[in-house]
């Protein structure tokens, strides 16, 4: 073979070797490859043995070229070998079929989750969030809300009392916060209040002596019943989805006039009638109305130039409808397996 022939041959061998190496995917094949090119009778041995036959001044150059090619291929060979070893090892040292271990993720109580959702909706509308004491006076819980002593409407709220004179009590609703806020801030104002409320109701699937309420109040010049409707429909559609239908019917609360009871089309059956809605297709969700002038007066506001609306809803009831919880007692068992579902 001439010098040029050897170089040409070398070039072909290298090209072919790289091409073959790339396709190799297991140990047997790579060993065959090694023997083919670098074995004692391999192609490189072959080509090296041709060196003595060429002219002496070109031998050194040819030898160098062969060596360089050999080194390059050996390096590629080692890399491939390493890759194959890793591949096999990683296929057997781990069992990928065993499921991962789910971490114990801390969760907020569903009452907090629903409260935050409600707060978020009203914050979009510029409402501020306020709170009030749970131990209330008769004045804030009843009298300022247009229920003087012996008013029959007081029977709507069975009350826990803390003193014999029945002047201190556990608030039966969050409505006292309306009065407290109006005493502190002057209109225009719009607030919601969220918190615990207490009623002397024995536990059953739909009653709890302690539950949470959200209360809302908006007061300004020219606030109308039509505004009340718009705000509450916005709220309910944000909370339960844009397809929910909202119904307003007359109701009675001593502290609002006109008063309304607001229902949504049943979130379970869509209004066709089911167990949850008692086949009515509607679910009562909010009580609302235009603030009674007497409440403004008791709060120290001049009711001549202002109007306002107020509303209230039970947080547990909303949470029960949102998450499909059928027993209010679940909220207060604080079972880890319950709370963990709301993460």
């Amino acid at each position: 073979m001439s010098h040029n022939e050897i170089l040409e041959n070398l070039d072909n061998i290298v090209k072919q070797a790289i091409c073959e190496l790339q396709k190799i995917n297991d140990h047997t094949a790579i060993e065959q490859w090694r023997v083919k090119y670098f074995g004692r009778k391999g192609l490189f041995a072959d080509i090296t043995s041709a060196i003595p036959h060429i002219s002496p001044e070109l031998r050194s150059e040819t030898g160098k070229k062969i060596n360089t090619a050999k080194k390059q291929l050996m390096q590629m060979f080692e890399e491939k070998l390493g890759f194959l070893k890793n591949k096999e090892a990683s296929d057997t040292d781990v069992n990928f079929t065993i499921p991962g271990i789910i971490p114990d993720v801390p969760n907020l109580h569903p009452i907090t989750l629903v409260s935050r959702e409600i707060v978020g909706i009203f914050q979009k509308l510029g409402f501020g969030i306020h709170v009030g004491p749970e131990i209330e006076t008769d004045f804030y819980n009843f009298e300022a809300l247009n229920m003087p002593e012996n008013h029959p409407a007081r029977d709507m709220w069975d009350t826990f009392y803390l003193d014999e004179d029945r002047k201190l009590l556990l608030r039966t609703h969050t409505s006292p916060v309306q009065v407290r806020v109006m005493q502190k801030l002057s209109p225009p104002l719009r607030i919601i209040a969220i918190g615990k409320t207490f009623r002397r109701d024995a536990f059953d699937a739909s009653h709890s002596p302690v539950f949470h309420q959200v209360e809302g109040l908006m007061v300004d010049k020219n606030i109308t019943f039509s505004n009340l409707k718009a705000v509450l429909i916005f709220f309910l559609r944000e909370l339960f989805g844009s397809r929910v239908r909202v119904r307003f019917l007359p109701s009675y609360f001593p502290f609002t006039e006109p008063s309304a009871e607001i229902s949504i089309s049943c979130v379970i059956c869509g209004g066709k009638g089911c167990q949850t809605c008692g086949n009515a297709g509607w679910l009562e969700i909010l009580g609302a109305g235009m603030v009674h002038p007497e409440v403004f007066r008791k709060s120290g506001l001049d009711c001549k130039n202002i109007t306002g609306f107020a509303f209230g809803a039970g947080i547990e009831r909303i949470a029960m409808l949102k998450y499909g919880i059928d027993d209010i007692r679940q909220f207060y068992l604080n079972d880890k397996r319950f709370i963990q579902q709301f993460g």
Partner: peptide, 12 residues
């Protein structure tokens, strides 16, 4: 009774 959003007053 139609719905109408109250005009914006300063947020509380």
């Amino acid at each position: 009774i139609p719905e109408s959003m109250p005009l914006v007053c300063s947020p509380t």
